[in-house]
Design a protein around this nucleic acid. Sequence first.
DNA 1: TAAAATTTGTGACTAATAGTCACTTAATGA
DNA 2: TCATTAAGTGACTATTAGTCACAAATTTTA
Lengths: 220, 220
Amino acid sequence: MLGCCSTTTDEKPISRKQREFARREQEILAAAVSLFENPHWETVTVEQIAKKAEIGKGTVYKHFTCKDDIYANISTGFMTRILTAYRIHDERTEIIDAIKEIISTSFEMFLGNPAEARVSFYCKRGDFRERLTPELKAEFEMLDEQFTGYIGTILQKGINQGLLPNKPVEHLMMGLEATFDGAIGSIWNGDINCPQVEDQETYITIISEYMVAGLVGLKK
Amino acid sequence: MLGCCSTTTDEKPISRKQREFARREQEILAAAVSLFENPHWETVTVEQIAKKAEIGKGTVYKHFTCKDDIYANISTGFMTRILTAYRIHDERTEIIDAIKEIISTSFEMFLGNPAEARVSFYCKRGDFRERLTPELKAEFEMLDEQFTGYIGTILQKGINQGLLPNKPVEHLMMGLEATFDGAIGSIWNGDINCPQVEDQETYITIISEYMVAGLVGLKK
DNA sequence: TAAAATTTGTGACTAATAGTCACTTAATGA
DNA sequence: TCATTAAGTGACTATTAGTCACAAATTTTA
């Protein structure tokens, strides 16, 4: 109920009615995501989402307590998919390559799924998190931990191998995260109007190199 | 008129009436800035701004075409002040120190003036810039050029001195800007809840070091 | 100076939209 | 079969950006 059907704590729905209800919830989220493809995603109204999902506006509120609840469910789903994407390359042994892989996977996921990515970006905001229900807040915290845990483990290996500076992995992660977030923001804001950069791909290459350089450059 | 009185193309107001009108415009901006100190600045209404400035709501729209016009004027004023702050240290000869100075001045300006900084951050968004009048758009472009020009010159000196990698200064700037923007976003979003970081100052030190490391680390 | 024109100020009004609620419809179960 | 619960609905409320017809003050013109 209330936006929880798509979470990880998903007890199998029994009746046809419950199944249909759960399916409808996914339809609402899919309708929302398809409308959020538009760069002006924040102006999409609940009424438009309802219309796209071919239901009444009131029904949306039977599934989600508020608009933020829709955003949150899109974001948690997307974050889970990113974590899955990271883990495909789990067996890598070269740490620098593993870091590059995480960076490129992140860019691919964010740029390949602009709607979900934009919403997820929005959902990182402190004031957004504050007004969430404790359950959703906890889910976000769990996902955040999985991210820092996954990346932190790889960075720690890099430190142990002497490839990265011996600093707390959290500190190393801060730089990476800030640069990634800033770069994604730049891309979405159309900041890349500088004539030196032919395209987005070049920009990503530059940023990715800078991210790795920032890590290893800290050694001295 | 219409939000232009605070711009650089400021012909001296002649009559008392015109002076008062210009002063009122500044009062509206000051009222807006004082209300925007609140982290939930986006929820501040035009009516609240009018009340704070002790005028009617309609009067606000005699000075500014829309709410965005208020944002834009706050932002251009702030950007101009940052450029001035940069130039205080113009005589520096050590390039790495000059870069560090720019970074620390930027952080100081952004964190010391949260209201104006938040608004300026918002005004960087492409969709915001799009819906501005051509005049304001041009003013933002001019300011952007002054930023890239100022920082670009310093970076070029660094390249000439062999301290920085021989890459287009625009490329070097991209990494710096992305990390700075991402870090500022993190601070405002309250992302620094990781126990390793005692305070904001530590975070800024970590990020600043990472920014310089990213630049010089690119050399290899 | 008086009248006309212009500038500045105003708050009631309009439009848009998030969220509510009393009600309808359909499914489940006793 | 009938009662209870779940699900769906769109008219309604509250809020807020922006408009506009008018008022007041100032400046210009006669």
